[in-house]
């Protein structure tokens, strides 16, 4: 029997509940709960908002106000790989614009987001903290420094095929 969407929803709900319960720190807040969920399943599905509301005895709206305030929370599943392009001042001076354009062209994206096949997610980053290696990109949280537009194009293209 094929998994129905409802059953899948339940399994997400279970995973959310687990993540909420397994928070190690003594003080549990809406914010810590949302972070725990995002760490566990990499995004905040609708179920996360609802379950966090129940868990923290808050209304869904309060949880949403916290979740929507922070730009690092995401509400759709990320792609299989995440590529982040730094556009901080150092990288910008060292040619980040060209790098970004190359990545966007390769991934066929015009802004931050996921590719159609959900293989890659592009995110902008204001500083990856490695200005000495500018321009910098990060692929699945691994930094690559002194990158050229051509390198970036190859790396991004590599994400689309396994």
């Amino acid at each position: 029997m094929a998994t129905t969407k409802a059953e899948l929803g339940d399994s997400i709900r279970e995973r959310v509940r687990c993540a909420l319960k397994q928070q190690p720190q003594p003080t549990v807040t809406v914010l810590s709960s949302l972070l725990a969920v995002q760490d566990a399943i990499h995004y905040l599905p609708d179920e996360a908002i609802e379950e966090t509301a129940g868990f923290c005895k808050a209304s869904v709206n309060e949880v949403w106000s916290v979740a929507s305030f922070y730009t690092n929370f995401r509400f759709t599943p990320p792609g299989a790989h995440v590529i982040e392009v730094c556009w901080g001042p150092s990288c910008h001076l060292a040619g980040a614009q060209g790098v970004l354009a190359a990545v966007q062209q390769e991934l066929n994206l015009f802004r931050e987001g996921e590719t159609d096949d959900r293989r890659a997610t592009l995110r902008y980053n204001t500083c990856l903290g490695a200005c000495a290696l500018a321009p910098v990109i990060s692929i699945d949280h691994h930094l690559k420094g002194r990158i050229t537009a051509g390198d970036a194009k190859d790396l991004a293209g590599g994400l689309l095929v396994d």
């Binding site: 609708d46 908002i49 808050a58 209304s59 869904v60 709206n61 309060e62 949880v63 949403w64 106000s65 929507s68 305030f69 509400f75």
Partner: peptide
């Protein structure tokens, strides 16, 4: 808490969850 402030800075607005 049926309504709340959503988002932030320039695009902050009154609204509901999602």
């Amino acid at each position: 808490n049926a309504i709340t402030l959503t988002n932030r800075s320039g695009v902050a607005l009154v609204g509901t969850s999602r």
